[in-house]
Design a protein around this nucleic acid. Structure first.
Lengths: 128, 128
DNA sequence: TCTATTGTACACTGTATATGTACAGAGTAC
DNA sequence: GTACTCTGTACATATACAGTGTACAATAGA
């Protein structure tokens, strides 16, 4: 379970867990049928309360990634992509992407470096 | 003041304002010497309380973008880029970028479309 | 000097986040 | 079948944060 969180971050822990797991799910590091650690176990690893992990699992369950049941725990579902993409989601993505880039620029990152990073990720996406 | 916010979003309004203004600042849509609208005025435009706008201005002031004074309002400062880039910031950027992409993928966006968007932004960055 | 306009301070309310604790359900050992 | 243990769930609570209401302080300009 290659997952790290930052307790100092302003981003809520449960959302960090959701984001981290979603990356693993989207990239096939977690596949249908795989089981996730019990909430108490992962919570111990991460140093948070198990209810915080449970909240994260529940969120991913509502997104359709996980099947969660007592005793058997959380299992990755074969997930069919959403039928249609919400049109406003595209706009939201562009906006959040620009926000992120602006924030990084504000921290002094050179445009070239940022551009390179974006291209690198684009290539990774298409290679998969 | 081309700035829009989403009151339904889970992202706090004041941070949306910060993010939106930072984009304008980084991209030279707002330049040193320019004055921003008074907090009450912008708040009215956006449909929020003026203290919420004031909080956003204060944040950008602490980041070194704005000089804020009573009566004269908020003015864009000539901002020298941070001397050195925090090394952990690079890692954080990559991570947040991957998180954003994973989230969008989870919403059903095709990898190709996302990759195209990333490349488009990369080009925009280098053209400036 | 007076007034209007600006940002600031701070108390208050509602919401979100994280935790503590008790519980419910379903396998497993016997 | 019963007891036990391991799983997630429910809900009360503590705390922090976001947003607002209201009063105030500072200053440019008439």
């Amino acid at each position: 379970m290659n997952l790290r969180i930052d307790l100092q971050s302003t981003i809520p822990v449960y959302r960090q867990i959701v984001d981290g797991l979603r990356i693993l799910l989207v990239n096939g590091k977690l596949n249908p049928g795989d089981t996730l650690p019990p909430v108490r176990r992962l919570a111990l690893d991460l140093g948070v309360h198990f209810n915080t992990v449970a909240e994260a699992y529940r969120t991913l369950g509502e997104e359709g990634w996980l099947q969660i049941e007592r005793r058997s725990g959380a299992r990755v579902l074969p997930r069919t992509a959403p039928d249609r993409v919400a049109p406003e989601a595209a706009e939201g993505f562009q906006r959040r992407l620009r926000e992120l880039v602006a924030e990084v620029q504000a921290h002094g990152f050179a445009r070239g470096k940022i551009a390179r990073e974006l291209r690198r990720l684009a290539e990774t996406l298409e290679r998969t």
